[in-house]
Design a protein around this nucleic acid. Structure first.
Lengths: 150, 150
DNA sequence: TTAGATGCAAATAGTTTGCATTTGT
DNA sequence: ACAAATGCAAACTATTTGCATCTAA
């Protein structure tokens, strides 16, 4: 229990929320993956770490983390249920193949100038962003509407 | 029945799908709004235009339009069900207030250069994008965690 | 003419709630 | 100590399915 608190855990605490076992377990499960996870997979992973944690707490935690911009629900092919993406420094970028639903990530987005301009224009404080590009990946350029999963 | 086909209807037809009454009604309902609509609101609007159209067809049409990048599901404040946003020229941009969930739209994103660079790097054909920025709006800068709807 | 699309109603996810109990600070 | 958070299981909402019928091309 004297684990070093991750930056996100600190963010949680600094926002005035309790660092409960359930929340820390959900956070650890999120951080252990590749940064993209569905609620179903997360429930499984959390259950693996501690079967005593209830479904409802996982969903409540997902809500809380979304409000804190730690994660962002996003739509990925086929399923209606969102996939939650971790927002490493408040931002995240990827390209989704509309045909096979594979996801390709990239880092550089060059949106700092735009962000700054919009802060002035709308008098908002902008804390992060999600940029999704859509298209057809190299493998799918020939075979439209196959819709296999990644 | 000799209505001028909207560009999106043409896109549908050109992709090899039938221009059915149900699909055209869903499209008209989508285009009549402000570009952001939940399935519940869409079902209502479609029902108003033609009560004979079934729920399942509306959902099937939403799937199809998503595959064609005519719309893009996105998750907005609180609700689990996605909100579908029209992608006017294949792209769409907005800012969401993390506190009150209001949405502010803007047009210019300056992502052409990035898009082009990524097409080369991943050997993909990029057809559109969705850019969401998150932050706290002018009205909410003082009052955190109120969470009223827009 | 006929593959593709539809409407229906029942089935299935997926998520939320109320509440008694526990826990972090 | 005590407000905040939890786990449970039941309730709910949103979406999908199977299938007989219909319709756009």
């Amino acid at each position: 229990m004297t684990d070093p608190l991750s930056p996100r855990a600190l963010r949680l605490r600094d926002s005035g929320f309790k660092l409960t076992h359930a929340r820390l377990t959900v956070l650890a499960a999120l951080e252990a993956g590749d940064g993209h996870i569905t609620s179903a997979a997360l429930l499984e992973e959390v259950g693996r770490r501690d079967p005593g944690i209830g479904r409802a707490s996982v969903f409540r935690t997902l809500d809380l983390f979304t409000r804190l911009s730690i994660i962002r629900p996003t739509y990925m092919g086929g399923s209606v249920a969102p996939t939650y993406v971790l927002m490493p420094d408040g931002h995240h970028h990827h390209i989704i193949c509309m045909n096979c639903n594979r996801v390709f990530e990239f880092e550089d987005c060059g949106l700092d100038a735009l962000t700054h301009a919009l802060e002035g224009r709308f008098n908002m404080q902008i804390t992060g962003h999600l940029l999704e590009l859509f298209g057809i990946c190299a493998d799918c350029k020939n075979a439209p509407f196959k819709d296999e999963d990644a």
